[in-house]
Amino acid sequence: MAESHESLLACHDLHCSYPDGTVALDGVDLTIHAGERVALIGPNGAGKSTLLRAIIGLIPSDGDIIVGGTKLTGRTVRDIRQRIGLVFQNPDDQLFSPTVEEDVAFGPAALGCSRDNVVERTHRALDAVGMRDQAHRNPLQLSYGERRRAAIATVLSMRPAILAMDEPSSNLDPAHRRDLIRWIQQEEGCTLLLATHDLDMVAETCDRVLLLSRHIVADGATRTILTDNTLLAAYGLEAPLGLQQLRFRADP
């Protein structure tokens, strides 16, 4: 994919606290360029999900969030949500319509797209995740892997400039996880921002890694960050299994 150096998403001195006073984000500064594939890693409670929610204005934050040159404000929040599509950690939180097709069509229809355009976007999004044949099924009756793919389709149909995914591989069996990784590797045309603990998936899908622990602790190439065992261990993370020597329980 051709990579431009245009800044697509920038956060400056971003702070966010929960109503009970817990500080979730404490001075986050980051810049993501168009076409980049960026992983957001960090231990539990590091603020990964909070950051993803904050950049589309789902939760209030202090500081600047600038998407494609537009600063996030009450007036621009709808425009920014059109540019960033967020796939939630739990697909059950994302799917609420009676059928998969209606759920996928919800976003483009709410954007005010024409009838034909909504149909075209819906079909393309379902094709992209291989769910066209499940279009008329009730999301509640799908397997977890299928629900995950349907949830991704609901965001793809909105054609966002940035596809943000929160723990996309959590609870997936190995086959569905592999399918997801393959799909992310092939997906072109939008900038990726993955918040995940799955460092093996990061190694296979992302060019750049941001290590978050309430603020950005490290920012660098995937290989550099994921091979820095000292850094990873300091934040409760482990190098990808693929880079570790496999030891069986029976080994001495």
Binding site: R81, F88, F96, G107, A110, V155
Partner: peptide
């Protein structure tokens, strides 16, 4: 949240 993220108004 899911509906708001998808432009529900």
């Amino acid at each position: 949240d899911a509906m708001t993220a998808r432009h529900f108004d």
